[in-house]
């Protein structure tokens, strides 16, 4: 049979190799992997974007700040989104939307850099985000509405005799939101990057 003499032949032919989580310094830290490293890099980029928006460079005050305009445009886009979707007089939940959007966007875009790592292509990360947001949203609902939070289980106008059946179906669909939310993001990123690597391998 064929005998590969290359030391790491897997690294040249496997399009799924880019999703491996590697421990960078196993002797020093157990938890420091390429995933956490790139995640901290993403958070640094996020912090830089916010800092550059709040404190623009004073020496070039006549020229517009490119980063600031970019972040401000994203802010206004998300503000209109929140205005149209969340029917509250005060948009108190806007900051979490802004933070999640920028974090996922930066993670996706940093993943496009060759030899980088796409944090959102690992299921544990997207699942954690979706689960944490779902738990937090439900805690807010329980805090504000107490037991009447379970009103989502029975839509208005449904016949009372069908209520147990509808409640069961609604509960299943309600909890499958976590999986639909996380698997959509993870599968899109993973499929896209695998396809890119395969297409690049043809050249």
């Amino acid at each position: 049979m064929t005998n590969f003499t290359l030391p790491n032949a897997k690294h040249y032919f496997d399009p799924l190799e880019q999703f491996d989580v590697i421990q960078l310094f196993p002797s020093i830290s157990y938890a420091l992997t390429n995933l956490t490293l790139i995640l901290f890099l993403n958070l640094l980029i996020f912090g830089f974007l916010i800092y550059a928006t709040i404190y623009p460079n004073q020496s070039h005050s006549t020229s517009p700040s490119v980063v600031g305009d970019l972040v401000r445009n994203v802010y206004e886009m998300l503000a209109t989104l929140a205005e149209s979707n969340i029917r509250l007089s005060k948009q108190v939940y806007f900051p979490i939307l802004f933070y999640i959007f920028l974090l996922i966007l930066i993670s996706n875009l940093v993943g496009m850099i060759p030899f980088s790592y796409t944090v959102t292509s690992s299921f544990v990360f997207t699942f954690y985000i979706a689960l944490a947001l779902f738990t937090g949203i439900n805690l807010i609902g329980i805090y504000q509405h107490a037991y009447s939070i379970f009103a989502f289980g029975v839509p208005t106008g449904s016949p009372l005799i069908l209520a147990p059946l509808i409640a069961a179906v609604e509960f299943i669909s309600y909890f499958s939101r976590i999986f639909s939310l996380s698997i959509r993001l993870f599968a899109n990123m993973m499929a896209g990057h695998t396809l890119l690597k395969i297409l690049i391998g043809f050249s």
Binding site: L81, N85, L88, L97, L105, M112, I137, N138, I140, R184
Partner: peptide
């Protein structure tokens, strides 16, 4: 390659839209 950038932005947008819908579901009960 360009498609991948579009997907990257679209997925972040979709995620935020769905989260805002879920927040609306819970905060504004019918």
């Amino acid at each position: 390659m360009g498609l991948e950038f579009v997907i990257a932005m679209l997925q972040a947008y979709v995620f935020v839209v769905l989260i805002s819908l879920y927040i609306n579901d819970v905060v504004v009960l019918h």
